[in-house]
Nucleic acid binder design. Structure first.
Lengths: 238, 238
DNA sequence: CATCATACTGAACATGCATTCAGTAGCGGG
DNA sequence: CCCGCTACTGAATGCATGTTCAGTATGATG
């Protein structure tokens, strides 16, 4: 465990010591989670003493916050960098191709469940971005209109991020590594695209469903709705 | 924090002491996660001493395994109970209506990320179930056929469970509580149903995409595929 | 050169934790 | 009545971990 760096302080490492500590922490946190990585291990990975970690960041928790901020900033940046190169339906897909993408995604997957204000903020930005990209997509005839654009974008992002968080299960169930390179994700991407492209229901079944659904998509949900006959993923009505 | 039970050992509690401890542990683990709930808190919630918890289960870790098994068994049972009452596209939806459903879902959400052999096993069963239900749905004209039924079922389950795991973000982004009652989930269910019903892409765009996709859906992914132009959720190509 | 701040360390320290231990109470079987 | 067994407890024990502390080196500044 904790197979990260080693103590070798690559001679040509121009990063400042705090930066090296922060980067080591990001790798460790991504690999084992925050709770299960002692400061000792981070210090070793950065080639310094545990005391120095505290000296620079004040406490392990403040170090974590610094990591959150840095990762959020990196993702924001790579997001805007990849803007021109054609956005995909998965906002994180572009990240996988970058050199440091996978560790970033692993860190994100951990932090999404641990909960961090900065990552939560990032998530809200991603939803907002998705809404506007999808509006463009709608305008150019690629995407369908939605009765609730924000809701749709949020649900798609939750699914995408949720799959990322459950990447271990994705590996077991589908044999793909969601933290890896995009060209090895066909086992995930193809079914996903199938659903994104056509849905899973027949047009008639969907028609019947919408007729039975309570009205008002965008206004905040009212209490008049009875239990819906079905929901998100996995089967049909008997 | 840890607002669970209290020490009151309801006089009419016919559960055995180990069962009471296990149930208390499930509640605590669901609420705060395994790592962040000391044995002491579980013992308090069950009205016993920490030493007794160890006495009955051997260690905290074995207690966790017992909880995993019990939760998996409960979910299996409620799943088969609700079979007759019309399965939905979300395999967990029925659980929400049961009295003890929400805590079970919360426990599941925690354990899915912590990783547990028994819950992983449960997940595989759920995929298998989903495949057969969706085959029925296809036969009765409700669902579309898929080029990769297992992949589709797995992806849908991953999305559904992923959203569950990220329920805190769902609350913030959509204002719904995925751990709560189904009739308060419209903000999630409606966009989800929209996607499940029709997909997000226009038929023409999907047509163009499938034409560009590499072939062979069911055979295990070969290494010949180049990067796919896009993926799962959030936008389109510029 | 003297001074001072800063980077840094090894060895403590304090705390929270799971687990152990020695012992008590109660109870069923001989 | 007594023996042994089980449920159970309060107080240790030992360990891992975050943090502090006293002190050293280094390099800039006067």
């Amino acid at each position: 465990m904790h197979s990260v760096a080693g103590v070798a302080p690559t001679p040509a490492d121009d990063r400042s010591t705090p930066a090296r500590i922060r980067d080591a922490a990001i790798r460790c946190f991504a690999e084992a989670g925050v709770a299960r990585t002692p400061v000792r291990v981070i210090a070793e990975a950065a080639g310094v003493s545990p005391a120095l970690v505290i000296h620079h960041f004040g406490s392990k928790d403040e170090l974590r916050v610094a990591c959150d901020r840095h990762v959020a900033a990196l993702i924001r940046q790579q997001k805007s960098d990849s803007m021109q190169a054609g956005a995909s339906l998965d906002p994180m897909m572009a990240l996988r191709t970058y050199r440091d993408g996978p560790p970033l995604l692993a860190y994100l997957a951990r932090t999404l469940v641990d909960g961090s204000p900065h990552v939560s903020e990032l998530l809200e930005e991603l939803v907002a971005d998705a809404v506007s990209y999808m509006a463009e997509g709608e305008a150019s005839g690629l995407l369908r209109a939605s009765g609730d654009p924000h809701g749709r974008a949020a649900v798609l992002l939750l699914w995408s991020m949720g799959a990322l968080v459950l990447h271990e299960h994705a590996t077991r169930l589908l044999g793909v590594d969601l933290l890896g390179q995009p060209d090895q994700l066909l086992g995930y991407v193809r079914p996903a695209m199938e659903v994104m492209g056509q849905g899973v229901m027949t047009p008639e079944a969907y028609e019947r469903l919408t007729a039975a659904m309570p009205a008002e998509p965008t206004t905040s949900a009212r209490g008049d709705a009875r239990a819906t006959p079905s929901d998100a993923p996995a089967s049909q009505e008997t």
